[in-house]
Amino acid sequence: MENSTVPFYFNLTMFVNIGHYRYPAFVFCLLLYSFIVSANVVIILVISRERTLHEPMYMFIACLCVNSLYGSTGFFPRFLADLLSDTHMISRPACFTQIFVIYTYASYEMTILSIMAYDRYIAVCHPLHYHRRMTTKTVVNLMALAWIFPILIVQALIYLSARLPLCGNEIQKVFCANWNIVKLSCVTTVVNNIVGLILTITIAYIPLFFILYTYLQILVVCWKSSEEFKGKVFQSCLPHVVSFVIYSTTAFCDVALSRFDFAEMNPFVAIFLSLEFVIIPPILNPLVYGHKLPEIRKHILRMLSWDKIIS
Rank of each mutant, 00 (worst) to 15 (best):
Q217P: 02
Y121D: 11
A94R: 04
T136F: 06
I203C: 09
V220D: 05
N192D: 07
Q98E: 12
I201P: 02
A156G: 15
L184C: 03
D119R: 03
V101K: 06
S185F: 00
L152E: 00
V124A: 08
Q155Y: 05
Y118W: 10
I158L: 15
Y159L: 05
T104K: 06
V140L: 14
I112L: 15
V139S: 13
I112D: 06
F149W: 14
Q98L: 00
T136H: 10
M110N: 14
M143F: 13
S225N: 09
L219G: 08
I201H: 02
I148G: 01
Y108M: 04
R163S: 12
G168P: 08
I112G: 02
V154D: 06
I112A: 01
Y103N: 14
E170V: 03
Y213H: 13
Y205K: 04
L152D: 00
K183P: 03
P165D: 08
W179D: 14
L145I: 11
Y108R: 05
L113Y: 08
L113R: 09
T135Q: 01
L145T: 13
T97F: 11
P207R: 09
K173E: 12
L208R: 11
Q98S: 05
V187H: 07
A94Y: 03
L219R: 13
W147R: 10
W179M: 13
L166Q: 10
I194L: 08
L216F: 14
K173V: 00
S114K: 13
L197A: 10
A144C: 10
C176A: 15
L216A: 11
I122K: 07
W223G: 03
Y205G: 04
F96W: 13
L142T: 02
L199I: 01
I99H: 01
F209H: 04
P150R: 12
V140D: 08
L142A: 08
